[in-house]
């Protein structure tokens, strides 16, 4: 079985995010990118399926900063091949555009199952997995936390609210949006990633023509504003503890 994992670099939310001069997007010049965390779970799910059933795992990404490192890491974790869709993505990539780019690349590749993260930090125009499936005319299920494959079918579990799940039989090939796998994403030692950089190559793919735009325009991007923000408690640990306990006492929450 051939599993393809679509991975996308997104801004690192741990860093301070600055707005551009036009006020309608991030200032992307010095932005630090990381792999979308849910795409890491999708890769883990793919590697677990390979361990259970054999076959191959191919990781495919968009040419955004740090993508090479993410793809070599995927190889170090056990992926068999890595491909990168090349293009000028300096102004960011909408989900609709990313889905069209992945769809274009996948048309020339063999696959039985396509996995990607359930969502990402840059999903203003929706989530890539379901868009990709619909562009390719394939079945999709998203918010998936369990995948079993048997022949040309998969049995998947989709998470609802309150811990309820729904189980579906899905005809392959299909696209699944992965929320979590049975185990947390595995770790690849830096030495192994470095070895992959020497041993393996990332295959470059040219972008398909006419990639769809999102069809939406951002009027304004801004940080949360308004008077509801928390009152910040400052000081050393003991002073903070003192203040918190007095608040809890005032509100009758501790005796």
């Amino acid at each position: 079985m051939n599993v393809v994992v679509c991975m996308r670099q997104v801004p690192d939310l741990v860093e301070e995010l600055e707005i551009n001069d036009a006020g309608n997007d991030l200032n992307r010049e010095y932005l630090k990118y990381v792999v979308n965390e849910f795409d890491e779970w999708a890769l883990e799910q793919a590697l677990l399926l390979k361990e259970a059933h054999g076959g191959t795992v191919t990781a495919i990404g968009l040419d955004l900063p740090e993508m090479d490192n993410a793809l070599f890491t995927a190889l170090a974790k056990g992926a068999d091949a890595a491909k990168k869709i090349e293009g000028d993505f300096a102004n960011g990539v909408s989900s609709h555009t990313a889905a069209k780019l992945f769809a274009g690349a996948l048309q020339a590749m063999p696959y039985d199952l396509i996995l990607t993260g359930v969502q990402s930090a840059e999903d203003l125009d929706g989530q890539v997995g379901v868009l990709l499936a619909t562009y390719l005319g394939l079945p999709h299920v998203t918010v998936v936390t369990g995948v079993e494959v048997s022949g040309i079918q998969a049995t998947v579990r989709k998470e609802y609210a309150g811990g309820m799940m729904s189980e579906f039989t899905v005809s392959l090939p299909a696209v699944l949006g992965i929320q979590a796998a049975k185990q947390a994403p595995r770790y690849a030692p830096v030495s192994k990633v470095r070895a992959m950089m020497k041993e393996k190559k990332i295959e470059g793919l040219s972008s398909s023509d006419g990639a769809a735009s999102s069809g939406i325009k951002v009027r304004r991007m801004f940080k949360p504003e308004g008077g509801q923000r928390a009152e910040m408690i400052e000081g050393d640990a003991d002073a903070i503890a003192e203040r918190v306990v007095s608040i809890l006492k005032e509100r009758g929450l501790v005796k």
């Binding site: 939310l13 995010l17 203003l124 069809g215 991007m221 801004f222 949360p224």
Partner: peptide, 13 residues
Amino acid sequence: VYGGKLFAEAEPE
């Protein structure tokens, strides 16, 4: 967007 760190005010084209 961005994990709730930013808001985007958007409209369709």
